[in-house]
Design a protein around this nucleic acid. Structure first.
Lengths: 333, 333
DNA sequence: CTGTTAGCGCATTCAT
DNA sequence: ATGAATGCGCTAACAG
């Protein structure tokens, strides 16, 4: 059995309060007794019981982060940066992943709150009202990332605008017949906004049009399927805009299988600038997302919100179109 | 403020004991009251206070998993499978990541244990004695994955053997001057074992030799650096074995930059078979690791260990060399 | 500076 | 089947 505060107190010949003090606020204790207590702590291999501590103090020094998927490199460095800032502040991070399921996200939220999370980082703004209602009832501070929000505290970027700019880059190379392989839009504002951005940019150019739009889960093989689907449009697209780099990479694979040359016959562009984008052949033109900065700022903002500081405000970060070989000029007929 | 058991009890017109029962042992409660209580729980958005529950019952239904890195797709699907099995058993998973740091791993272990993890999944067997000693003192069950162990409970595969087989595949194509871009070996048994496997296979073929070995962190750019380094060996290698697919992909990038044709001038092979391996050009010959099966079995084994069942035993799974275009015959001089 | 005391929210006897 | 009472290990007033 693990030893308790009382065991330590007895061993050191002091009260439990004193032991608690040397653990939490050593300056309040006389040098001599502090030494005696520390010795007893060592000797007994005492570890505080988190549950009891949480119960008594109502403080946990813990926040939760919930991401849709572990297999998408898109979130990794942002979360890592988030965690770094937190740990500098002496705050622990608990992580959960949902597999893009709303139900699982709510489950994870409950789990992390149960385990003492005093605040949450969530990805994207679109989720069931039930989820928001739950967090409101629990009165838990949260920050949404990888997107912007007018309603909730957010640290992210404007997906619509980023997709708009990417599409302009595509149009600038002369493409007019454009297809899109989007991510799953239901319950996913990032995917939805990116489609909206593409549409808006196309609408500004009179003879440009979206010849085909398909939705595909964020996996390589579905990017490949998407490529096959959109190439059957009439007329076929000369450029394919993908909802993220994984889809773009999948599309590239299928293009190679089909003997379709990229970018000579068709251009393919992605989103997120994960490592994959620079490795594929050809390298993928994409949108760079300020992941690390996003993670760092999310941490600051969330900590401030938890501390109840006012003047805590959402942040919108900039993205950048990264031009690589997968985007070329429109082929001449 | 979050609502408590007592709030729910009051709202439902019952005692706290009854509410506690419907939450933990519903069969012990009459149908009608159970319904009334559940309703009150819903209405108030009640979530149990984990600390209190842990304090009172000494049970947590929680396990922790700690992985070296979020940015490596290598762990994603295994962990997801792990989590699925757990959640079928009504057990929550808490996740932590360490950035390949021993100190951070110990910190995470402490954090997760404090937060109620009753068992742990860890990656690999090599870590400071201090870490093992800590877990022993806390008497916490754990299972190590992605490796095998004679000392600890493990569910994984034999990295040495897998690397051995891969190297045999390389030797079979006539390569004799072989280089290796290994992962960081300090504190990383997977990396160390893979090097050992390569060495062992090379030792079996008289005129084969390891012309150069470098260690690099698992990132694309370091794979590129590694390529540059090993190509300066005299004689230069005709095949480069990489510690994982990320390093291999990085090496491919540099090869392309340098105008070195793969596999015509030099072959490059990786390890893990992450998505990247099939996307790069050329596709990367690699070792497929049974991630999902590993995750599932790890969960079963860990749950059994936590339950104190005996006959809990380590599992070793098979790997498979996946031949792709990046491995070719040795070039003729 | 240190001890005493009173809960924190819950599971769990023991009654009824 | 349900309620009342107890204590888990700790922190936080409050005294001294």
């Amino acid at each position: 059995m693990a030893s308790t505060l009382e065991d330590v107190a007895r061993a050191a010949g002091v009260s439990t309060a004193t032991v608690s003090r040397v653990l939490n606020d050593p300056d309040k204790v006389a040098h001599a007794t502090r030494a005696r207590v520390s010795e007893a702590v060592e000797a007994l291999g005492y570890t505080p019981n988190f549950g009891a501590r949480m119960l008594a103090s109502n403080r946990t020094n813990t926040v939760g982060a919930i991401i849709p998927s572990l297999s998408n490199a898109m979130f990794a460095s942002g979360i890592q940066a988030f965690q770094e800032v937190l740990s500098e502040a002496g705050v622990n991070m608990l992580l959960g992943s949902t597999g893009y399921s709303d139900a699982e996200e709510l489950r994870q939220i409950k789990t992390l709150l149960e385990h003492g999370a005093g605040g949450l980082l969530l990805i994207g703004t679109e989720r069931p009202a039930e989820t928001y209602a739950y967090m409101a009832r629990r009165n838990v501070p949260f920050v949404v990332c990888w997107a912007t929000s007018e309603q909730y505290l957010s640290v992210g970027f404007d997906n619509t605008r980023a997709a708009f700019e990417m599409t302009q880059a595509v149009l600038a190379r002369g493409h007019r017949d454009i297809a899109m392989i989007a991510g799953p839009m239901v319950g996913n504002d990032r995917a939805t906004d990116r489609v909206a951005g593409v549409r808006a940019a196309i609408a500004q150019v009179p003879d440009a049009r979206l010849v085909h739009l398909v939705e595909q889960p964020y996996r390589l093989e579905h990017g490949a399927d998407g490529f096959t689907a959109v190439m059957q449009a009439d007329p076929p697209p000369t450029a394919i805009i993908c909802g993220n780099d994984v889809l773009a990479a999948g599309a590239l694979i299928q293009a190679r299988r089909d003997g379709v040359s990229v970018p000579d016959q068709v251009s393919i562009v992605g989103f997120d600038d994960i490592g994959l984008a620079s490795v594929s052949a050809p390298a993928i033109t994409t949108v760079r997302v300020p992941q690390i900065e996003m993670g760092r700022q999310a941490a600051s903002v969330l900590l401030a919100a938890i501390a109840g500081r006012d003047g805590v405000v959402s942040e919108t970060l900039d993205t950048e179109v990264i031009l690589r070989a997968s985007l070329g000029d429109v082929p001449r007929k």
